[in-house]
Computed example of a mutant assay.
Amino acid sequence: MLAAERRDLLVARLRRDGKLVAKELAAELGLSEDSIRRDLRELAALGLCQRVYGGAVPASPALGDYAARAQVEPGSKRAVAARAVDLVRPGGVVILDGGTTTLAVARALPQTLECTVVTHSPTVAVELLTHPGVEVLLIGGRLFKHSAVTCGAAAAEAAAAVSADVFLLGVTGVHPDAGLTTGDADEAAMKRALAARAAETYVLASAEKLGAASPYAVLPLEDVAGVVTDGREHAVATELAARGVPVLAGGGSRV
């Protein structure tokens, strides 16, 4: 089998199975694991997969710039937001992460809601200007323009003073094996710092993030209270539920 044919096979298998295991592929194709790993490196360089220990998983499509990501699965994000607002209790304190899905959550919050929102996202803070009963605490720091959030030492130090009921976490990848991932190391560290300040963390998982992964780990799935999806049937959501991860689907149901 030619190298190009082998790479086509790997891409097709990745789409079908949601992951590639180098050792298994090497045995099946009669090749060395080094040959398979070389193929995976080339596919990763083309943005066709995300390499993980022992193989590869689908690369997240949610790594484009902020404007581009706003156009990806907008309906799914609105459905996730509609379910996630139920997690924000009147009089409570919620941390809203940055990103286009959490922005959808801010837009979906009832105008009559009274609560406190802590965020490191200027776009989320501005969206809440029209919510008279929402007290907004904006965490400052170095602005990471890709996701329109603040990161760095100053932001992490400010986060350490926060105590919240719930954190609504945005990521770019939710994978049963790779866990919760994002595309920047500093942003991943900031997400962990915020998660440590909340009693519960829920992951906002619009359709393009399910089954995908990015380079930097945020949290293992066992560290979150649940994953919020848009309610559509998805093999990854079903697998997460089978592994004991609570999945809250759009419409108020659980998978």
Rank of each mutant, 00 (worst) to 15 (best):
V21A: 13
A22P: 06
A22M: 02
A22H: 08
K23W: 13
K23I: 11
K23D: 15
L25R: 05
L25A: 06
A26L: 10
A27V: 11
A27Q: 14
A27T: 09
E28P: 06
E28V: 04
E28Q: 10
L29D: 07
L29S: 01
L29W: 14
G30K: 04
L31R: 09
L31I: 07
L31H: 10
S32E: 06
S32C: 09
E33I: 11
D34R: 13
D34N: 14
S35T: 15
S35R: 12
S35E: 14
S35P: 11
I36F: 05
I36K: 06
I36M: 05
I36N: 02
R37D: 13
R38T: 13
R38M: 12
R38E: 12
D39P: 05
L40T: 04
R41G: 13
R41I: 10
R41S: 15
R41T: 11
E42W: 14
L43M: 02
L43R: 00
A44W: 09
A44L: 07
A45D: 13
G47Q: 00
G47I: 01
G47S: 07
G47C: 08
G47Y: 01
G47D: 06
G47V: 05
L48Q: 13
L48H: 09
L48E: 14
C49L: 11
Q50V: 03
Q50R: 08
R51P: 13
R51K: 10
V52K: 06
Y53I: 11
G54W: 10
G54C: 08
G54R: 05
G54I: 06
G55A: 04
G55H: 06
V57Q: 07
V57G: 08
P58D: 07
P58T: 02
P58L: 05
P58S: 10
A59R: 12
A59N: 04
A59H: 07
A59F: 04
A59V: 09
S60F: 00
S60I: 02
P61R: 00
P61G: 03
A62G: 07
A62N: 08
L63R: 12
L63M: 13
G64Q: 12
G64C: 07
D65S: 02
Y66F: 14
Y66K: 01
Y66V: 03
A68S: 14
A68Y: 12
R69Y: 03
R69P: 05
R69S: 04
A70R: 13
A70S: 12
Q71W: 11
Q71L: 15
Q71A: 15
Q71R: 15
Q71H: 14
V72C: 01
V72T: 06
V72N: 02
V72D: 06
E73M: 11
E73H: 14
E73I: 01
P74Q: 03
P74V: 03
P74H: 02
G75M: 03
G75E: 15
G75W: 01
G75Q: 10
S76M: 00
K77E: 05
R78P: 09
R78T: 13
R78W: 08
A79K: 02
V80H: 08
V80K: 04
V80M: 09
A81L: 04
A82I: 00
R83A: 14
A84T: 03
A84L: 04
A84W: 03
V85G: 07
V85Q: 06
V85H: 01
V85K: 03
V85F: 04
V85N: 00
D86F: 07
D86W: 09
D86A: 15
L87C: 04
L87M: 12
L87D: 03
V88K: 02
V88T: 08
R89N: 04
P90A: 02
G91N: 00
